[in-house]
Simulated scan of single mutants.
Amino acid sequence: MDNDIFEALFEVLTFFHQPQDERQQLRQAGTALEPAAMPIIVRAGQQPGVSVGELAGWIGRNHSSISRQVDRLIKTGWLTEVERDDQRIRRIKLTEKGQRGLMQLKVARETEFSQRIQDYTPQQRADLLRTLRLLAKTLRRPKED
């Protein structure tokens, strides 16, 4: 059964990270960003002041690749650097333009998701929400050694 749960989660994650769907969502949100920018924008929105190194670890790409993407997002007005306490660590946050864009992306994603689950009953939606919250809480707990 654990393998079935894992496979179902993999399918859910795949749904949220399809480059062709991300391109469409970016167009619907009225942005000219490339899909590779989405996880940076989303994480910067969730955690203002996130470092480029932390982004690289979470996203699973190398530091220099993320740094170049961050440079492009700063040039296009989506991100700004946070004042540095430590010159070795580069921290970023969304600009007002970035915050508006992130909200537009969220609306596009939520619309797509809502269309996919439109046939769920209110009880099924409530059950799904309860289960996902439980899973999120479980996954946030530190690993036991």
Rank of each mutant, 00 (worst) to 15 (best):
I59C: 02
I59M: 02
N62S: 14
H63V: 07
S65R: 13
I66S: 01
D71T: 09
R72C: 03
R72S: 12
L73E: 00
I74F: 05
K75R: 15
W78M: 12
L79D: 00
L79H: 01
T80G: 08
T80N: 10
E81S: 13
V82N: 01
E83F: 12
E83T: 13
E83S: 15
D86W: 06
Q87P: 10
R88E: 15
R88Q: 13
R91Y: 00
R91F: 02
I92H: 02
I92S: 00
K93W: 04
L94M: 01
E96Y: 04
E96L: 12
E96R: 09
L102T: 01
L102G: 01
M103H: 09
L105H: 00
K106L: 14
V107S: 06
A108W: 00
R109D: 04
R109E: 05
E110N: 15
E112V: 06
E112G: 06
F113I: 11
S114R: 12
R116K: 14
R116M: 15
Q118C: 10
D119T: 15
Y120Q: 06
T121E: 08
P122R: 04
P122V: 05
P122F: 02
Q124L: 07
A126I: 04
L128N: 03
L128P: 02
L129N: 04
L129A: 11
L132W: 09
L132R: 01
L134H: 09
L135E: 03
A136T: 04
A136H: 07
L139K: 04
L139Q: 02
P142R: 09
